[in-house]
């Protein structure tokens, strides 16, 4: 299991545990984290699962694919250097302890 903390734009925190192999979006969604909409359920089609990734862990995940990169250009909140689509990030044991910040809007 991988432990992740999600922090909503208004400061609310969720401590979540999810199995390796799931996506960072699924871990949030199943546990009711509100700041992720994930309208397309993880198909990299909606850009409503945008997160600001933990800078300390950014080397431990692969770079965005071309599709993700294009979709990141279309997020509702501003794109930053650590912006990712959470449905495209697979949880691994290396990511244990991450803190993920959520944007103030997804739509």
């Amino acid at each position: 299991m991988v432990k992740i903390t999600y922090v909503e734009a208004d400061g609310r925190r969720y401590e979540v545990e999810a199995p390796e192999g799931w996506s960072l979006m699924e871990a949030a969604f199943q546990n009711g984290v509100e700041g992720i909409e994930a309208e397309c359920g993880g198909a990299c089609n909606c850009a409503t699962c945008h997160v600001y990734f933990d800078e300390r862990y950014i080397d431990k995940v692969p770079q965005p694919s071309a599709t993700e990169d294009e979709m990141l250009e279309c997020t509702a909140a501003e794109r930053r250097s650590n912006s990712r689509l959470s449905c495209q990030i697979e949880l691994t044991s290396e990511l244990d302890g991450m803190v993920i910040n959520l944007p103030d809007t997804q739509i």
Binding site: W22, E26, F29, Q30, N31, G32
Partner: peptide
């Protein structure tokens, strides 16, 4: 298990 939208705890909380 991966198909589930929200887990059981979510419904209780809401």
């Amino acid at each position: 298990a991966r198909l589930v939208q929200r887990n059981a705890g979510f419904y209780t909380k809401q």
